[in-house]
């Protein structure tokens, strides 16, 4: 049976600490470049005429482009813990439109000492203006 002990602090990190914030403007050029780089050419992202016929009424950014910004935050904060064993669990709550600015923020919600090391669980949220568009959490070894 595994043991888990909750900690308030570890190696200078504390529950409640903020992760570095990231602010990224998104425009259609960036969405097109991501479509080209990822091969995800769903017309909802790159074809304004098609996008007009959808629920959204215009093109939207790939959800996974927004997750790339989340990954940049976690890479900057704790590269090894994120790249080697990191976990991400998010829900997409709303679209990011060309012209939006995405703000990624995060906070250490808990620190756990498990059998194989100490892990931080970080709450994450991406906002466009006041609207949350992605919400979830990441778990990284620290």
């Amino acid at each position: 049976m595994s043991n888990v002990e909750s900690l308030q602090q570890y190696k200078g990190l504390s529950v409640g600490d903020n992760l570095p914030e990231l602010i990224q403007a998104v425009d259609q050029n960036m969405i097109d470049a991501y479509a080209d780089a990822s091969g995800d050419i769903n017309p909802l992202h790159i074809d304004p005429e098609f996008a007009k016929t959808t629920f959204f009424g215009r093109t939207i950014a790939h959800g996974l482009l927004t997750l790339a910004f989340v990954s940049r935050v976690l890479s900057q904060w704790n590269w090894n813990g994120w790249a080697y064993g990191g976990e991400l669990n998010v829900a997409f709550l709303g679209p990011v439109y060309p012209g939006d600015t995405v703000r990624v923020s995060g906070e250490i919600e808990s620190i756990e000492h498990r059998d194989d090391g100490v892990y931080a669980c970080c709450q994450l949220v991406c906002h466009c203006a006041e609207k949350a568009v992605v919400k979830g959490y990441a778990i990284c070894k620290i």
């Binding site: 769903n42 909802l44 098609f50 959800g63 080697y84 064993g85 991400l88 669990n89």
Partner: peptide, 16 residues
């Protein structure tokens, strides 16, 4: 079909 979207995503990165 075209127009499908992502609702949720989980990843575990075992290594890059």
């Amino acid at each position: 079909p075209p127009g499908g979207i992502h609702a949720k995503q989980q990843f575990k990165f075992h290594r890059p």
